[in-house]
Amino acid sequence: MNWLLAVIQIILFISLAPLLAGWLKWCKCYLQNRKAPSLLQPYRDLLKLTHKQPVVAEQASWIFTISPYIIFSATVLAATVVPLIAVDLPTSASADVIVMVGFFAFARFFLALAGLDIGTAFGGMGSSREMTISSLAEPAMLMAVFTLSIAASTTNLSVAISHVLDQGLVLRPSFAFALFALILVAIAETGRVPVDNPVTHLELTMIHEAMILEYSGRHLALIEWASQLKLMLYGVLIANIFFPWGIARSFAAEALAYGLLAIVCKLALLAVLLALSETLLAKMRLFRVPEYLSFAYLLGLLGLLSHIILEAAR
């Protein structure tokens, strides 16, 4: 039963991710006075791509063709770790939050290799930039996560969320810092404005798009889906760690339905905020990104120090 629930949760994760992307696009269009496509458009795009014949560059080796499957699987594995509608599912014990960061690193490793595989300048450029940004984002992210895991004395996300729920609504400065740090990292890692712009193919500013320029058909579908999944994952992380109220703690049908409703509302709200910030902000220069990420790191560090000094002082 528990395992069945875990599988259902993963399927929910995978199937809701394009919807979130559609909703985000819809919000942005509304804010920018454009006519919005249907909410289901990302599904249609994915379906269309899977029916197309993939064209692969002559230069490409097996790394290029196998990478989309690896990227997708690694992202799905990361999703198994994160509690979506219920805590204490059996899959959450198989890996903790550090392993989740490891899965992202796994996906990124192959994405960057695929970028280098075709032997064009764009691919190399994308890989180089992606690795740069991610290697600065990872410590900032772990800093935020460490704050949480030292406070809850666990790196298991499910247990940590239960801990936050048990504590009730307390205003903790460390969590506020960690929240902001995690939001900044999430924006950088999912390639949103102001770090990267997912809708542009302007060669000077591309990061993520530069690496996947040569992909088409089902390969592109998998990569797109994986990045939508990653966006949702970060959204769920932020929503469920810092505002876990509503998540199911028992496996009763009522609690689960309530949990699903809660997470859908939280994600919808987060997407509105993201659309708002994407509309208001401009993309920044590449070499401003390190400053942005070191700010995120600093916030994480402040969170940690404030936990040690203010909350756990002896």
Binding site: S61, I63, V101, A112, G115, D117, T132, S134, S135, P139
Partner: peptide, 23 residues
């Protein structure tokens, strides 16, 4: 250590990518 690990991944993407991939 997290920064080290991430830089290590970048470094070895470079190693494998430049030696074995591309033209």
């Amino acid at each position: 250590l997290a920064l080290t690990a991430a830089l290590g991944a970048a470094c070895f993407v470079k190693v494998f990518g430049l030696i074995f991939l591309g033209q």
